[in-house]
Design a protein around this nucleic acid. Sequence first.
DNA 1: TTATTATTAGTCAATATGACTAATAATAAA
DNA 2: TTTATTATTAGTCATATTGACTAATAATAA
Lengths: 234, 234
Amino acid sequence: MIEYASQPHYLVAVDCIVFGFDGESLKLLLVKRGLEPEINKWSLIGGFVGPEESTDDAANRVLKKNTGLDGIYLEQFKVYGQPNRDPIERILSVAYFALIDINKYSAQLNNDFQAEWFPVNEKPELIFDHNTMVSDARKRLRYKAALHPILFELLPKKFTLPQLQTLFEEVNDTKMDTGNFNRKMNSTGLLVRLDEKDKSSSKKGAYYFKLNHKKYRSDFHLVLNLMPNLRLDI
Amino acid sequence: MIEYASQPHYLVAVDCIVFGFDGESLKLLLVKRGLEPEINKWSLIGGFVGPEESTDDAANRVLKKNTGLDGIYLEQFKVYGQPNRDPIERILSVAYFALIDINKYSAQLNNDFQAEWFPVNEKPELIFDHNTMVSDARKRLRYKAALHPILFELLPKKFTLPQLQTLFEEVNDTKMDTGNFNRKMNSTGLLVRLDEKDKSSSKKGAYYFKLNHKKYRSDFHLVLNLMPNLRLDI
DNA sequence: TTATTATTAGTCAATATGACTAATAATAAA
DNA sequence: TTTATTATTAGTCATATTGACTAATAATAA
């Protein structure tokens, strides 16, 4: 008869792949690791799961500590359970990806935790299997964004269509036709055009839009097939 | 300074939601639990993760033991990490969904492990949070099947279009137009029609098809938007 | 021979798509 | 003041896809 007591116990951690978008490129929030082994090397934001908290709780706690933000969009996407992924002792890591409006992020915390934003395509080497985690998280983000309008979580309240298109292109690593993109976005009914224009990047200026929150909540699944030539590996 | 030694350690298990299809309804393979607490109650196929194996290894081992099958389609989809989900001691469970050709399943093992197939809509109450796991797995299967042709894993080598349609309808809990379904399926290039017919369920008989395996592997992502009115909650 | 019926194929109006061109609005240059 | 410039926005159009529907088919049973 199998009994609990005789079974092995393991350390369990959470690791968060934090995405941000500054209007130009998709970014990743990384920290200098604060414990041995591999201390002071670049790593994902993470920590051990405490005895009284769920893994979701742990991810939120760790994010709050490192970004100062509550209510971040967070989604568990994979457990990394190779026996030898940590050189010291077996640790299972539950990986989450997080989407945050980069403008809300308070840079003061930067110093405290030595956190830093990197363009996803120019990230440094990370410890352990964190590079794989980032790669998997990017695929998952693409996958999810193909079916759900989650990318708005990365944008400020007011955003322009060109900004939105750039974000889609960054996430999907592709280029799309502007006219067709605008037509499709407008047809979703998710956007509300404001009277104000953003003239920082053109003479004509681009209208600001905001999310139609009612539609966003009720039709969370409506953005299917927004991407042409969808390529999903997960 | 945080050190590994001072951190709490937990039991880690895997649980498998095993789907099958008998031509009529989507089914679930359940077992009578063999250890306390809740011994002899219906439960998902599962087990503890051993010290030398990954969670994927553990899931495959547990499936092999309970079904006799190797090489089952298996996909990790969520970790259940609530501190109190097991009444005796904290156990984190890594949940997998599995798709098997129900005809390959050897019923002999049925007795050894008291395993039994249930239509998903008529399953008994399960222990702990296993009911939630099944519900989540069904959503995830629907989600995945919307983008990838994985449902073929549930069918025998030779199958008919009406069978395939019934499977799609079962998984998505909907009805679809037969003509349009056939047109769309044929247009994927994934199917090869055989000369043989299945006459068991009609006078005219329905042509058998087989998978175009080359196409299946190379275009694993091409079945996007096969479902009308897609509703995905994950 | 005829009626039956699941299966398969075909029709068609409406909509969506991808590639493309034209118009617009404001600025900067002449 | 006029003109050139350019990102943004809107419009065109041939083609493909969709959903709802009807018709033809093949074998059996009456």
